[in-house]
Design a protein around this nucleic acid. Structure first.
Lengths: 112, 112
DNA sequence: TCCAATACATAAGAAACCAATGTATGTGAA
DNA sequence: TTCACATACATTGGTTTCTTATGTATTGGA
């Protein structure tokens, strides 16, 4: 686990990228996928995720569709057209930011 | 300028790294150096910097010495032994974090 | 049957930052 | 010489964003 301050500000970008790759996902699935992909180094809490998803939906970035698995509700999120545009912007901004930080902190790239 | 959420959580790491490289620096100097090095992409505000410096000093991470330039006070900060240790940890954590994010967001490294 | 996992959600509070403001000195151009 | 800008410190109030805790309900496995 990273110190919590580091992860701040990256949640939105992570969510958007995952949705861009997987078309549609539900909240719990997102938390589990991030946990797996990062080998528990990044854990998205539900208290952080759900409010973010709701906010992005309210902004028209995400679209939802509800599905019933037995009696249990599952709420799928996917990117709206504006969402796809925003995702590209966020990702390129993040890549730029990482290069800037790498330069600023003089971090050597890992051997490929 | 990056969207402000991105920069969150990186301030402490940036300050520690700059102090490790330059032995001693004062607050205003730090803001200007970051501004220059990042070509205005990252601007550290004084409202964020000074409280951080004070906190790090209170924790024993930073040591201060005051100097007078004419009638004007200048407060130099440098790393304590604990500060040097913490800096190494923070930098390696950040490097690790960047690799994790690069993988998660599937970001291709820039050509050298 | 009962605990863990699945799956949603909210609410209270903390952490970290931003914007604004304040004080004071030094400096260069009109 | 005066006035705007740069240097250099600092604090305060508010916002954003996340954490911790809690709540509800269903489902699956030991």
């Amino acid at each position: 686990m990273y110190s919590s301050e580091l992860i701040k500000g990256t949640l939105k970008t992570i969510v958007l990228k995952l949705l861009a790759e997987h078309k549609k996902m539900y909240g719990y699935e997102i938390t589990q996928m991030v946990k797996e992909m990062t080998k528990d180094k990044i854990q998205i809490t539900e208290g952080a995720l759900y409010p973010t998803l709701h906010a992005l939906e309210a902004e028209g970035i995400l679209i939802t569709e509800t599905e019933f698995i037995g009696k249990r509700v599952r709420k799928y999120y996917s990117l709206s057209p504006e969402g796809k545009k925003l995702t590209k912007e966020k990702l390129s901004e993040f890549a730029d930011f990482m290069n800037t930080m790498k330069f600023l902190l003089d971090i050597k790239p890992k051997q490929a």
